[in-house]
Amino acid sequence: MSIAKGREITISALKYNPRDKASKPTFVDYKLEETPGMTLFIALTKIREELDADLSFDFVCRAGICGSCGMVVNGKPVLACRTLIANFPEGKLQLMPMPAFDLIKDLSVNTGKWMDAMSVKVESWIVNNEEVDITKMESKVDPDVADETFELDRCIECGICVASCGTKLMRPDFVGPVGLNRVARFEVDPHDERTAEDFYELIGDDNGIFGCMSLLACEDHCPKHLPLQNKIAYLRRKLVALK
């Protein structure tokens, strides 16, 4: 079977290198032929190999698992690797780097630095004073509770919720939906000994649970469909009851 010639598409990408004084933010248009099943990963790789070797962007798994490739496509933050060109009937895609993170170059932003700082701020790990003897049986966990913890642990820290967040625009130190979800995750986990009071210490302010304005673009855009609305509301009710 032969592959019929695809339509011509236009990808318009923002180019800017903040480390180069001569560089100014500009959109550059790339025209290429669509191939069957083409994703933005395939298209951008082709652009770099054939049209512009200087275009910077980030991909790792290219399968929607690692969360590296968040970018703003026609105004919406998405995972580029899971973005099919076929879903754009006009054949025009405008790409911009995600806001809210430090720009590295072009479409590449520093989500790693932001997520590490968030993780440290909300102490995104198990807190437990008991030293576990790993030669002995593991402690039992209710299968439903394990499943519930897993549901919230599915977050890949891609940053799309942060790029979608209105509160983050107003409060630069806001931990973001991702940070609140991390807390919700440890709140469910029976291995974690922290109490509601402990979590209040971490997120009981306007940069935490009380900052959210409930615009909820985070949930609209989350590529993992995490229940952010419910969990943020739950945490807020729980923590507001403390004071």
Binding site: V60, C61, C66, G67, S68, G112, I156, E157
Partner: peptide, 10 residues
């Protein structure tokens, strides 16, 4: 890459 994006995740 940011360590949580490593191929182990796959």
């Amino acid at each position: 890459v940011p360590v949580k994006r490593s191929h182990s995740a796959a």
